[in-house]
Design a protein around this nucleic acid. Structure first.
Lengths: 131, 131
DNA sequence: AATTATATACGAAGGACTTCGTAAAAGCAA
DNA sequence: TTGCTTTTACGAAGTCCTTCGTATATAATT
């Protein structure tokens, strides 16, 4: 486990998502990806990535002149952490309320719904086993 | 619908949750509730609630010396807005990934699971109807 | 009436985050 | 070599949010 690593800010999360999707990348590459979504200055991205390296959110390889950064935290772990906090603050700890909202607000495909049903049934049978 | 109302910050959300739960309240009351969780100065809460009134997140009745504030945004709407944003930034728009994570990370009671299953089945039959 | 308690108003400090300008270094091209 | 491009480094400004000190007004208490 890692952690004294702080939770990423929103901007840092955007950068992490590029690193998660494309693997180790230069600042230039990340900045280009971000600019597909919205305008960001190069030095802004650079600064953020430097800070992320300091915080331990990213690792950087300074071998070549163009430094290469990679995520130092996993996507699943990060999502889990942020979800925990979000459930606490916005749904006062009720994950189920959140699930109901999420299911209601976004239409899911039949396949996705089946996937979820399968997961629920697995959970129910698991809790049977505990008896 | 409302909205040019900004999304509440975390502190504002804490206050809104008191207002949602207990209805129109004085600063004193809200501050006492907050202090059951963590230490907050009275003028801090006052200032936040004044700002919330400015922003349109709360309404205040200044009839009596002790002003009475009430939420100007509904809990469900606010949760929906925040959830939308959270899904976008943290799960890149995939509400289903979030649902799976939430179901996985927090153990739910059998009753809750049944509730969710019922919702899913309702959604499935609804999408049948569309054909 | 004088004191004490409670309320609002205001401003400003401090911190976290984002943004960007500028400089210095390193590589590339003419 | 000289100049152009790319990169890192650094610092500082600006914003948003939170917190709190202080002043002022109103009410309650003695």
């Amino acid at each position: 486990m890692n952690y004294n690593i702080p939770k990423p800010t929103e901007s840092e999360l955007e950068i992490l998502q590029v690193l998660w999707e494309y693997g180790p990348s230069s600042v230039r590459f990340v900045n280009d990806k971000l600019n597909e979504e919205r305008e960001v200055g190069y030095t802004t991205t650079l600064k953020l990535m430097q800070i992320m390296a300091e915080k331990g959110l990213a690792l950087r390889d300074t071998q070549s002149r163009t430094h290469i950064y990679q995520a130092a935290v996993s996507e699943a772990d990060t999502q889990k952490r942020l979800l925990q906090k979000f459930v606490d603050t916005t749904f006062r700890g009720s994950a189920m309320k959140l699930v109901m909202q999420a299911l209601g607000a976004h239409q899911a495909s039949p396949e996705e719904l089946d996937e979820i049903k399968a997961l629920i049934e697995k959970m129910e049978s698991d809790s049977e086993d505990e008896k």
